[in-house]
Design a protein around this nucleic acid. Structure first.
Length: 113
DNA sequence: AGATTGACTGCAT
DNA sequence: CATGCAGCCAATC
């Protein structure tokens, strides 16, 4: 990673940090809040995130309300455990009820270029 | 500089 | 509701 980012990652992390406890947001939702980004970029930013950044990446899931599986990783299991520890429940299909836990971002959080 | 990939999404089948 | 295809943009090879 370059010595200095274009700020895109920081913006994404900033949004993810706004997700309150017990709520979840989708990659596309975040991508819509960050101008100049795309669902792929959000996913890439989450892959590059580190525990030290203090970003609750486990609260970021795909539009289906399910945890995305990554390359040969077992992180998906940890993510599920973290979400359950926050009071979020999964249904039989291992999916989250977005109607109940879906995070609605306030307007003032939206970026206006 | 061009091609490939990736923790995705939405619509069509 | 599951599967397939196209669109999306940055990072990596």
């Amino acid at each position: 990673m370059s010595s200095e980012t274009s700020g895109l990652y920081e913006r994404i992390y900033s949004i993810v940090r706004q997700i309150p406890y017990g709520k979840v947001a989708s990659y596309g939702q975040i991508a819509l809040m960050v101008e100049g980004s795309a669902p792929r970029i959000v996913g890439y930013a989450m892959a590059a995130v580190t525990p030290e950044s203090g970003v609750p990446w486990h609260r970021v899931i795909n539009s289906r309300g399910e945890i995305s599986k990554r390359f040969g990783g077992t992180g998906d299991a940890d993510q599920k455990a973290l979400l359950e520890s926050e009071g979020i429940t999964f249904n039989e299909k291992n999916r989250i009820d977005m109607k109940k836990y879906g995070w609605i971002a306030p307007e003032f959080l939206l970026q206006s270029p």
